[in-house]
Simulated assay, not measured.
Amino acid sequence: MTMPQDPTSPTIVAPQVLLGNHLKALKLPTFAREYEKVAMESARDSADYPRYLLRLCELERIDRERRNVERRIRQARFSQVKSLDTFDFAAQPSLNKSLVLELARGEWIEKRQNCIALGPSGTGKTHVALALGLAACQKGHSVAFTTAAALVHELMEARDERRLRALQKHLNTVKLLIVDELGYVPFTAVGSELLFEVFSQRYERGATLVTSNLPFDEWTSVFGSERLTGALLDRLTHHVHILEMNGDSFRLAASKKAQRRSGHAANLAAKATSQGDVEPKL
């Protein structure tokens, strides 16, 4: 005589439920989401079991990498997300395009080298820095983006709150540290020393990208000490790629273009109004 099964017995739990639990525990969300769809596609294509599993593994790996890239981009805290696809190299002929594209491949980050972008305000230094940071995230590197003023403020705040060592450790662990807009705001003696310590600790241990509107011989005006500035430049420029961007300001050019469009529209409107005031001949 067959005994009735207990409805709560695990032996009658639907395989889909058990499979879903296992895939969740194994952290395979794409498997869980796609396995039924891929099973039907494999059956339609008469694919064998290894090919079925291969398709699922490929989907899981692609989706996992996408999520990892998105996580690295969030953690980088970019001011904006920009790529080299939207950068107008033709408008900045002084910029070495081939070098920028080479840097986008990320080998300099793996070699723990540095990059410094120099040029007047508005020439695209931040855009290039953001684009290289994005490329680094896509290549699997951890990135931290900040302005020089914000970093110094954060360092001084961390020192006052007795968490400076933890912040320095974080800044040392990222593969690429991007410090934007060095030169716009002069630092106090304490701020200069704290920033120097960051660069010094990363020397030959991690890649650093700095953008500045000042040539090297004017960096003393920011750090306030020739000795400290010399020591800093010695470390930053030992293994370095220099990007010179001495063209016209993108923002100034865009402003002039907008003004020309506005003036042209005003002329057309005035002309149309003038023509409308003329009474037709009978």
Rank of each mutant, 00 (worst) to 15 (best):
M3C: 00
P4N: 06
P4G: 01
P4V: 01
P7Y: 11
T8W: 07
S9F: 07
S9M: 13
T11G: 04
I12W: 13
V13P: 02
P15C: 10
L18K: 14
L18M: 11
G20L: 05
K27A: 13
L28Q: 12
F31V: 08
R33T: 14
Y35V: 08
Y35E: 02
V38K: 04
A39T: 14
S42N: 05
S42M: 09
D45T: 08
S46H: 13
S46E: 09
A47S: 12
Y49R: 09
P50V: 04
P50H: 04
L53V: 06
L53E: 08
L54T: 12
R55C: 11
L56E: 03
D63T: 14
D63F: 09
R64D: 10
E65R: 15
R66F: 05
R72K: 15
R72N: 07
Q75G: 01
Q75D: 13
A76I: 03
L84T: 03
L84R: 10
D85C: 06
D88P: 00
L95F: 03
N96R: 15
K97C: 03
L99S: 08
L101I: 08
E102F: 11
E102H: 11
E102I: 01
A104W: 03
Q113D: 04
A117C: 07
G119M: 04
G122I: 01
T123V: 15
K125V: 02
K125N: 05
T126D: 02
L130F: 07
A131S: 12
L132A: 08
L134K: 09
A135H: 11
A136E: 06
C137R: 03
Q138H: 14
K139C: 07
G140V: 02
H141A: 07
H141V: 01
V143H: 02
A148T: 03
A149I: 03
A150D: 13
A150E: 13
L155G: 03
M156D: 13
A158W: 04
R159T: 09
E161H: 15
R162S: 15
R163M: 14
L164S: 10
R165G: 08
A166C: 03
A166Q: 15
Q168G: 07
L177Q: 00
V179D: 02
D180R: 00
V185A: 05
F187E: 03
F187A: 01
V190H: 11
V190M: 13
F196I: 06
F196E: 08
E197Q: 11
S200R: 02
S200M: 04
Q201D: 10
E204F: 04
R205A: 11
R205M: 06
L209H: 05
S212F: 02
P215D: 09
W219D: 06
T220L: 01
S221I: 03
S221R: 10
V222Q: 06
F223A: 02
G224C: 06
R227M: 12
L228C: 10
T229E: 05
G230W: 07
A231I: 06
L232E: 05
L233C: 14
L243M: 05
M245P: 00
M245N: 00
N246F: 02
G247L: 00
R251H: 06
R251W: 07
L252H: 10
L252W: 04
A253Y: 00
A254E: 12
A254S: 11
K256V: 05
A258I: 00
S262R: 15
S262P: 00
A265E: 13
A266C: 07
L268T: 10
A270S: 10
K271F: 05
T273W: 08
S274C: 10
D277G: 03
V278E: 13
E279A: 12
E279S: 12
E279T: 14
P280E: 09
